[in-house]
Design a protein around this nucleic acid. Structure first.
Lengths: 327, 327
DNA sequence: CTGAAAGCGCTTACAG
DNA sequence: CTGAAAGCGCTTACAG
């Protein structure tokens, strides 16, 4: 910029004015500056600008897995809101590893992102307290923060699970299984709670052998499913706690000698083309991402009211597999 | 940092040494500095560091759509390589809009990302010349750069398409349709070329009415498909030029009165569970992303040889739909 | 082992 | 309408 100023025969501030489209420059001066910019191939260095202005016009997004079909659209929705605010998005995957989440979030804070959207893997977010104190707005999405008070945008996991189980009960099932993610994950715990309450409301026992919470690794899910289907009190229906479980259950259903009704949490492409079509509790990942990002920018615009929790409704989509009667 | 130095009663440089883990500080001095850091809640500001060092330790990724099931794993693979190099990833979607691609890429350059991975939407990348000149390493992936010479990592679109059509021919088809993306997109043009060559090699005519290139909007695809299936010379097999076309074709197949063989470019989850299973030409998005990122970091490590083009093989996965005989 | 000075490339606050 | 000076928060190059 100094070189441009020298070549155009003007002061530094005048170049700055032209580069930023500020008023108060005569057309003639402006042309001289523009010519110098072109001749020298000048490109403004935003690092310097950021250092001086204090705002980086970037936000960070920490999620579990960029490539997950549930998080990818969420991420895209955050990006669109950021774009509308002329803000860049820096994102990274925690791979469900608390240390990696912390490492990433703190790296983003060191870059002084204006704000942070986090899908937490950690169960202790006190490490963020100094950052939030220092002014980095933070919104949690999909799962709430732990041990600190912060904005959160969540799906109605409890209500969705309850609706799924009630739907199966309405179709005649009395022995209903649940295979879900590790209970330390908030969404999994909420869905488990919904299952139990729906069973209780229907006056049905919930045999502990019908519930299996843990890793969503296909092998574990297969084993859990086999146990439920072939025990002394075999389940006639399964509520699959997330999309990975559902996919494994669908594979099992395709080859199993024993049919069972199935409702999955999370929708997925082509669910309607399988036979039977797969009944699901659909979440709205775009709404989650958009709402989280909008909440963040509202904070950045100076709204300092108490942290809020927003709940996004889920929706039952009946396609056949959840309407099968008990065998 | 100044405050920390004052409180610890040391110079600025000593604080810098402690913060960066540089040697040459006595344990006692170090403790004094660390205490001051904790007491003051000091967090290093990377913006200043970046300005001084010249390297931002961040790379940019411009892609078509973060949420696309093909690009999401590619993006994740780039992220993993970046992470291994202690580099953050800033990414954004061009939405297949050339202007948006340019806007994003230039914004990333203004931030002085160390390098750029681009899945291009534009057909003229001369706007990047000054940036590349100024030292921002750039690698194109999935599609090559236009009107500039740059590294590119591409799938073997031509070979994959040829293999698909040859496979259909081997199963007795003589009238084979192709519905693909707009020909201005390099991958679509290459797949079209593979189709034509395979037909010619089999000594088959390729009636122009069997080929339809354009938007992958479901309505357009449906109309094109209906035309091919119900003309005077109806096709008995379809080669679907990408995953969006395949999905629409699968939906059509599920309800159509007339069956047809189908091979889709791009694999997708649950393709094996449909009936028939869907035969595909699978690409390797993870290899594309990883190779592109590794190429980029090789450039950043100072390799200045001529731009290279790397080709990643595709793989035909037979599942039933591509092995159906002609009706 | 330690620190003072200069500078990275911009913007801010001010003066003319 | 225009510009000189100071400063954002670090690191570099150097000296002691």
């Amino acid at each position: 910029m100094k070189d441009v100023a020298a070549r155009a025969g003007v002061g530094l501030k005048t170049v700055s004015r032209v580069v930023n489209g500020e008023p108060g420059v005569t057309p003639d001066t402006e042309r001289r500056v523009r010519d110098a910019i072109t001749a020298l191939g000048f490109r403004r260095n935003d690092s310097a600008r950021i250092l001086r202005k204090g705002r980086t016009s970037s936000i960070g997004l920490v999620l579990e897995d960029l490539a997950d079909p549930f998080y990818a659209p969420l991420s895209r929705a955050v990006e669109e809101v950021a774009r509308a605010h002329e803000t860049l998005l820096i994102n990274g995957s925690s791979a469900e590893d608390p240390e990696r989440e912390e490492e990433l979030a703190l790296a983003l804070c060191a870059r002084r992102v204006d704000g942070l959207v986090i899908i937490p893997a950690s169960d202790d977010h006190r490490y963020l307290e100094p950052e939030i104190e220092a002014g980095i707005a933070t919104v949690f999405v999909d799962r709430p923060a732990s041990r600190i008070d912060a904005d959160a945008v969540l799906s109605d996991n409890y209500g969705g699970a309850r609706a799924a189980v009630a739907h199966l009960v309405a179709h005649g099932h009395r022995r209903i299984g649940l295979i879900g993610d590790q209970v330390r994950i908030h969404t999994a715990a909420e869905r488990l709670r919904g299952y139990h309450d729906a069973m209780a409301e229907a006056g049905l026992p919930a045999d502990p052998s019908w519930v299996s919470m843990g890793s969503t690794d296909p092998d574990r899910v297969r084993a859990a499913l086999a146990g439920m289907l072939h025990g002394p009190e075999p389940v006639t229906a399964l509520f699959a706690g997330n999309n990975r479980v559902t996919v494994t259950a669908v594979r099992h259903l395709a080859t199993a000698e024993r049919r069972f009704a199935l409702i999955g949490f999370d929708d997925f492409e082509l669910a309607d083309l399988l036979s039977p079509g797969i009944t699901v509790i659909a979440q709205d990942p775009v709404a989650l991402g958009r709402t989280a990002a909008e909440t963040l920018f509202r904070r950045l615009d100076g709204h300092h009211d108490a942290p809020k929790r927003v709940e996004i409704p889920t929706r039952l989509i009946a396609r056949g597999s959840g309407e099968l009667p008990p065998e």
